[in-house]
Nucleic acid binder design. Structure first.
Length: 979
RNA sequence: GCCCCCGUAGCCCAACAGGCAGAGGCGACCCACUUAAAAUGGGUUCAGUGCGGGUUCGAAUCCCGCCGGGGGCACCA
């Protein structure tokens, strides 16, 4: 059996041996080291610094206990191929990989096993490192780190301190370009407060404005918290008893459950750390235009930020029983042009003005539908509030269609026509958006229409509906305004945009309203009640005032504790409260420190929350640049060199846009479209504002790699069976095949790869059975990087055959001797070679590795057919293959007589003269259908070509004497005869 | 409900900027090597581009409407 296989065939065993050897050599020679211009690793003499540079990055992995499956390295291989290609073009390439190592699974595993999460996490990282090495990743090892390294999280804490010690000054000029608004050190705000330039806006009991000097330390801290970019707030947050922690909005799904674990989430008022990401909402939206990112991701971020431009309009509410008292009630609307159609108002159940505006008794003639059978408005509103507060988000969701609400007994004055309109309370208006109150315009809003119909309220159309628009629906489309005039202003006949402009101008003039921008984005909840995360660099003094820990005391190390678990609760126990595990480490919590603020040594309590998992991934790309720097998170010259703004903006940027800088290529899954990528952009912009980085964005170009999916087979009971053991049974009648497992029929479905689905294939198995290079070639030839595709192990052999043929084109399988000959290329081979070089180069450049591989297979197949393989053809092919199959390529390169690694050997150049053919095949069409083909000189002139085509007997036969109306000539490729 | 992406051979995928539908791989079939099988090598097969219209001399490609698949958002005023 095996003894019949030629001794020097490129088998999995030989591949494995070659691969291990080259991996050792790359490591010992430091092949993938890139050169830094400054900082601790400065190598200013490195010749690459004078050439181009590129930073290539993958979203770093979380080292889970299950290791990698074949889907995970797809993006890693793609970036490795690109990096290896770029090195052969002379570029200084930075490509490394670290680990996102804080996080919930390690902590949960630690809780189960009693092992420290650091121990299990580090063991997992070792497994990942071995797996990545085995598939031939050309990562620069010395730049790798994990977020749990104290040297790393020291700087994560340092950035937190910078954010904490900053405020957003809306009126300060932007650091670069036009406009205003940037983060500034809080000390500059304190100076303004001290000098009286800015008022702390605090008053004594008599209403006299207090000066900064008159405030107590506690009240000063409170004032500053109103400005800081990181602050503690007592606010409704997402409390998840099942996980024992609070969660950010981004971590809660639309149906009110935790993204991780799928536990119910409740709104609770709790004191928590927040990040003022909302201060950056505009820049986070606007700068998306300057990035080369998938449109889909940019759209998701725009939706998440949810900027909408509209107007705030002041209505005044009063009760019929007490005419004298008027309460201003502001609404936010994106359609101020429809103000004349506002026939009622709705406020959220939590609206703070409700107690003031609700009267003691129903007004005369209150519609019985409005009162919900309650004896008076106060009872009705209180009952409604009670029901609304107990409804979970899921329940609210479920009743989204039916509109419920109750009349408050109050009326409001519509400022455009002075009409009295009833004020309702209803839960379809949310306190968390706009002002928590709306003007209801049933004519132009379907929700308001539904409510109006349910409660018998009037409907006035103020936009002329389009022809054929159903009579029983709101019209939300474009059309001329109608019924929209008072003594001073008329919108009638105007389109929506013009009408908005005119009415806003009128409202402003009368002091009744103003243009307003609102956002769906909320501040980022930044604290978690977990053990396995970065401690906050914050201590609390005995007055309850927070202080940041001085830089020289960083890192604030995570202490060892006997018990890693936060207290978790029954998932449905909404009344439980979070308890952080660190709070139990009393020796760590209670400290005496001199913060260097002139107050001397004092007693403090450490903050016991930890940072969310996103903190470490917010800025790791910056640390890759300069990981050994102990003085700064990154040397400014190093940052400017690698990711500073480029001279030209990205291709799709709007005219006049400047380049924001950032990582040249970032590849990762679309699941991080909002969370990680939004948080990271926010931190980066703060660091930019404070002058620590020259780039305005972290990731200049982003690609979302597709997922590798797999078939799942289930038995009669619906349980997954091992996919690898399933047999395909061809249908004898040519229909769809069926599947069996251990002789029993099973069903096939398509989906994710996962342990519980019993369809996991690992890179280790593939390396063992085929070799790493084959595995890499297969993954890269399955399709475009962005595409989702099914894994098919039996198809891997195609890639192996390709490498075997390539091997055989250089090495004799029986003797191991190199068989290439030093003879000049025949013309066909020469042309094929240069066409391939040109094509492969363009494909690598554009990350189209699948088509690059196809072209190389084509050339290789051509060489296979030659009697002897010329060196002049196969050497460039080996170089071209190197980015995808680096071990095999290095081995062949060495056997071909080269001493140095080909990692930096210049990529072959195509000779343009050999890309143009002397003769080409011209297609002759009649009425767009191909009727003949002509071999013509490549430089044939159109008139000659036309004559040739018309003279073609086959064309004449098709024409059959019909008059020719027109002849389209695209010399030299095509002639189309129109009759 | 709104928005985005994708439908090409039995399967995975090519087709650059509208111009010959096929580069590559898997499978299937045939042949060679083999006692045989596997492995390897050589060859063959297979769609008119989801459906219906339109623009054009010419459409997989552009436009409109459906159908199917995937994803995002969802009482956001």
């Amino acid at each position: 059996m095996s003894e019949r296989i030629p001794a020097h065939r490129y088998t999995a065993a030989l591949a494995n041996e070659i691969e291990a050897r080259w991996q050792d050599r790359w490591e010992s020679e430091g092949t993938f080291r890139s050169a830094n211009p400054a900082g601790p690793w400065a190598e200013p003499q490195d010749p690459r610094l004078g050439r181009s540079h590129v930073m290539v990055m993958d979203m770093f992995p979380y080292p889970s206990g299950t290791g990698l499956h074949v889907g995970h390295p797809l993006g890693f291989i793609a970036t490795d191929v690109y990096s290896r290609y770029m090195r052969t073009t002379g570029a200084n390439v930075l490509h490394t990989m670290g680990f996102d190592a804080f996080g919930l699974p390690a902590e949960q595993y630690a809780v189960q096993t009693g092992q420290h999460p650091r121990v299990t996490t580090e063991a997992n990282m070792e497994i990942y490192r071995a797996q990545l090495r085995r598939i031939g990743m050309g990562h620069e090892q010395r730049r790798s780190f994990a977020t749990i390294d104290p040297d790393y999280y020291r700087w994560t804490q340092w950035i937190f301190t910078q954010i904490y010690e900053s405020w957003y000054d809306e009126s300060a000029p932007a650091r670069r370009g036009g406009g205003t608004g940037r983060a500034r050190p809080i000390s500059e705000l304190v100076a303004q407060l001290e000098s009286g330039e800015r008022s702390p806006e605090r008053w004594d009991d008599e209403g006299r404005a207090l000066t900064w000097g008159e405030l107590s330390a506690v009240r000063r801290a409170e004032v500053l918290d109103g400005y800081r970019l990181a602050y503690v707030s007592q606010a409704p947050v997402n409390w998840c008893p099942g996980l024992g922690t609070v969660l950010s909005n981004e971590e809660v799904t639309a149906d009110g459950r935790s993204e991780r674990g799928n536990f119910p989430v409740f709104k609770r008022n709790l004191s928590q750390w927040m990040m003022r990401i909302t201060a950056y909402a505009d820049r986070l939206v606007d700068d998306l235009d300057r990035l080369d990112w998938p449109e889909k991701v940019r759209l998701m971020q725009r939706n998440w930020i949810g900027r909408s431009v509209g107007a705030t309009v002041r209505f005044s509410a009063r009760t019929p029983l007490d005419d004298a008292v008027e309460w201003p009630l502001e609404v936010f609307t994106t359609r101020p042009d429809t103000l004349f159609g506002a026939t009622f108002m709705v406020v959220a159940p939590e609206h703070p003005s409700l107690p003031e505006i609700v009267p003691d008794a129903w007004p005369e003639g209150t519609d019985p539908r409005w009162s919900d059978g309650a004896p008076d408005p106060r009872t009705a509103v209180a009952a409604y509030q009670r029901v609304a507060s107990t409804k979970s988000d899921v329940e609210r969701q479920a009743d989204a269609r039916t509109k419920t609400g109750v009349f408050t007994g109050a009326f409001a004055t519509n400022p455009v026509d002075g009409l009295q309109i009833p004020v309702f309370v209803a839960d379809y208006v949310l306190m968390g958006y706009g002002t928590g109150a709306i003007m209801a315009v049933p004519g132009q809003d379907q929700r308001d229409w539904d409510f109006a119909v349910a409660y018998g309220l009037p409907i006035i159309r103020t936009v002329e509906p389009a022809e054929g628009h159903p009579q029983d629906q709101a019209f939300t489309g474009e059309g001329p305004a109608i019924n929209s005039a008072n003594d001073e202003v008329s919108l009638d006949g105007l389109g929506i945009a013009e009408a908005k402009e005119r009415i806003i101008a009128w409202l402003v003039e009368r002091g009744l309203g103003r243009e307003t921008v609102t956002y769906r984005l909320r501040d980022w909840l930044f604290s978690r009640q977990r053990y396995w995360g970065e401690p906050f660099p914050i201590v609390w003094d005995e007055d309850g005032v927070a202080h940041s820990v001085p830089d020289e005391m960083l890192p604030v190390a995570l202490p060892d504790v006997p018990d890693y678990s936060p207290r978790t609760f029954e998932p449905e126990d909404a009344d439980s409260s979070p308890e952080a595990p660190l709070a139990r480490a009393t020796e760590w919590v209670e400290v005496e420190l001199d913060l260097g603020d002139g107050r001397g040594t004092r007693r403090y309590r450490r903050e016991t929350n930890t940072m969310p998992n996103w903190a470490g991934s917010c800025w790791y790309y910056l640390r890759y640049l300069d990981p050994a720097n102990g003085e700064a998170l990154v040397d400014p010259a190093v940052e400017r060199y690698w990711i500073g703004p480029r001279p030209a903006p990205v291709a799709a940027a709007p005219a006049g846009a400047s380049d924001p800088g950032g990582v040249d290529l970032y590849v990762g899954g679309v699941e991080h479209a909002v969370l990680h990528l939004l948080y990271s952009r926010f931190w980066h912009k703060v660091l930019f504002d404070l002058g620590y980085v020259s780039s305005e964005e972290p990731f200049r170009r982003l690609i979302n790699q597709g997922m590798i999916e797999a078939y799942v087979y289930r038995d009669a009971r619906g349980f997954p069976v091992p996919a690898a053991e399933v047999e395909e049974v061809a249908d004898p009648h040519g229909g769809a095949p069926t599947y069996t497992w251990e002789g029993e029929p099973v069903t096939q479905e398509y989906g994710k790869m996962g342990k519980s689905l019993k369809n996991v294939v690992t890179p280790d198995e593939m390396c063992e059975q085929y070799g790493a290079d084959t595995f890499r070639v297969y993954e890269m030839s399955m399709g475009p990087l962005e595409q989702y595709r099914p894994w098919e192990t039996r198809a891997v052999v195609g890639s192996q055959r390709f490498l075997q043929r390539l091997w055989r084109n250089v090495v004799d399988e029986e003797t191991g001797a190199v068989t290439v000959v030093d003879v000049p290329l025949d013309e066909a081979t020469d042309r094929a070679l240069h066409r391939t070089i040109a094509g492969v180069r363009a494909d690598y450049e554009a990350l189209r590795t699948n088509t690059a591989v196809a072209k190389m297979i084509e050339l290789n197949n051509h060489l296979t057919k030659l009697e002897k393989v010329p060196r002049e053809a196969v050497e460039p092919l080996v170089q071209m293959v190197a980015p995808v199959a680096p071990h095999l390529a290095e081995e062949l390169w060495e056997r071909l007589g080269h001493k140095d690694s080909l990692a930096y050997a210049p990529f072959p150049e195509a000779d343009p003269a050999k890309l143009v053919e002397d003769t080409v095949t011209c297609v002759v069409q009649v009425r767009g259908k191909v009727r003949d083909r002509l071999e013509v000189p490549a430089d044939v002139d159109p008139a000659t070509l036309e004559a040739l085509a018309l003279a073609s007997p086959r064309v004449q036969a098709v024409l059959d004497g019909a008059p020719v109306r027109k002849v389209v000539v695209r010399a030299p490729n095509l002639v189309n005869v129109v009759v």
